[in-house]
Design a protein around this nucleic acid. Sequence first.
DNA 1: ACAAGTCTTGAGAACGCTCTCAAAATGCGT
DNA 2: ACGCATTTTGAGAGCGTTCTCAAGACTTGT
Lengths: 356, 356
Amino acid sequence: MARVRKTVTIRDVAEDADVSLQTVSRVVNGGPNVRPQLRDKVRASIERLGYVPSLAAQRMSGSRSYIILAINDRERTLADWRERRGTDWVDQMLLGGILTCSKHGYRMMVELIDTHSDHVERELGAALSALQPDGVILTPPHSENRLITELLSARAIPFARIGSDVAGPGIPMTMGDEGAAHLATTRLAELGHRRIAMIAGPSQYSLSGWRIEGWKRALAEAGLPHEGLLEAGDFGYESGTRAARALLARNPDCTAIIASSDQMALAALEVARDRGLVVPRDLSLISFDNTPIVRFTQPPLTAIDQPIAETVSRAVEQLIARDEGDNGGQVIEVAAGLVERSSTAPPPPVSAPARA
Amino acid sequence: MARVRKTVTIRDVAEDADVSLQTVSRVVNGGPNVRPQLRDKVRASIERLGYVPSLAAQRMSGSRSYIILAINDRERTLADWRERRGTDWVDQMLLGGILTCSKHGYRMMVELIDTHSDHVERELGAALSALQPDGVILTPPHSENRLITELLSARAIPFARIGSDVAGPGIPMTMGDEGAAHLATTRLAELGHRRIAMIAGPSQYSLSGWRIEGWKRALAEAGLPHEGLLEAGDFGYESGTRAARALLARNPDCTAIIASSDQMALAALEVARDRGLVVPRDLSLISFDNTPIVRFTQPPLTAIDQPIAETVSRAVEQLIARDEGDNGGQVIEVAAGLVERSSTAPPPPVSAPARA
DNA sequence: ACAAGTCTTGAGAACGCTCTCAAAATGCGT
DNA sequence: ACGCATTTTGAGAGCGTTCTCAAGACTTGT
């Protein structure tokens, strides 16, 4: 409607509504003491002029920047990208974050950082200085990276540690890994499996440990053994291949595998195929993550659905609402679910010369 | 090293180096007229103090915001998310964008907008006012959305139109869709296929047309017909199922299909399986996009690799370098490649009672 | 050696907003 | 009605940068 209009500022609104800047500011920010009549008048002006406060200016004067920063590892992201592995984790985290941020008038930014080297401090510091975010979201394995958490708490920037439940600064948030592994294992036990193996993730991830615990607990509850049924990978495809081979070579009587990532499950599926095993007839398979790829494999994989987006969303809300009383170190947990598809079935009747 | 230090500002650096604010600013921004000696001194101070300019302050005073905005459709993104369809496109675009932005000291932000409704102007306007980005990246189908492009040019914000080559404001960028379709079709023709079908995308996407053109051109060059071999979908799985069924029902002699998206290719794969056709023995299949899922289907799909990340990266560079002479409406094209996997093979020897 | 440049440096305003604090208006108890 | 507490409004400074413009320090040509 207008021509190349210059930016509409709070001053324009103030003039239009014939009030002071301060009053407009109060209306915009839902300030408490404004007469309803004036408030409406100002609102009308804002509407008419199409005024939207400038994020930069808000940051400059106020205490908030309305920015939540999500940290990701540059190397890993780059590698995933080059090799066209899915970066579904990033996806999910972004979506959960962006959606929730925008609901509260915040924005989410993603920062790629070299989290391995000692550039961490430098790079993260630069990002924090430039952006001055109101909160930061850390995902595994950064959630327990000392350099990072210390830098953040030194700067007094609130942050959420996803996939970490240790005490310390930052809001710990978990995704029910122990419970999820327990759930998957129990389901397999119920189907009749007696030799249920697990391909775990790398030990530097806390969640790897939790999953192993859940698996062991379910096994114990069902009176099943776990000895020799554990292998660890690094979440990647190749490591899954190695682990699955080792597992099946060592345990010919193994009839079910839980893999700690979709990529490793895919690898296990391939290994099974190589060994002439038909999934799920001869071998049941459950994966962690439930990224889009597992719906299109042959057969589609039963998977633990990690509520990443939901968790990040919760994290954002925690960060934004931090003002209203500190969350006293209480771990926040979002539970995972099991999506049953076609890679799970009862074990073959003859297969197990178990109690040999 | 320091305690809860207050933010280091340009003033601190100026004092430390015993020069004026302005001189520091010049050094930071690579200003032209500074004595080398002074420059080094200032650099040393910056280094020592760990100074990083505040984005917000830069935006406030200067003309640039160092922000590039990428527009995505909220509904579609949300749907993809809920149904755990891969949002690889978003991924790729983000990665290409973020990486290139950070290389130039810029940041990329993603904005989800209701691009269908008439909220577009409102929502986009709000985002532009709040963020005041230095550039905007539009992806299909927004690249040719009048409301959007006009709003952007009215505000004089440079933008790139990915997947669009029409004249007008904004930098047009394409990904060689015509050439890619031609390449895929030609490859199939070389393998000996005579009835090569295409499942196209929706017509409101320019690239759908280009792909059809490339397919027809290759067919014509090989002396093959195209009549009755074209179906259109909406890029989604279900539409692919419908299209593939129609195609195969109408053309029992069809031995190859090119699908305009991975999801539709997946659907075609499933349809073929239902009809008892073995891919690639009885039917060859090539998809567009090359998202991570097509590597893990049975068989893995041969696919056109859309250089999304690369294109977005180029777009960002164009936007950042816009100052140095307008890009006179010349279309920028990044070529796509063909990734051969196992869904393509020569047609079955007997199959075609073609010249009936 | 002098005027006329060019290069280098700095001072001060401006960007758009929110803070703090004080002034004006209102409400209330007696 | 009167004083006091409370609510509502506004004025002005300040956030950290870059911009404009002017002053000082060098060059250079003659």
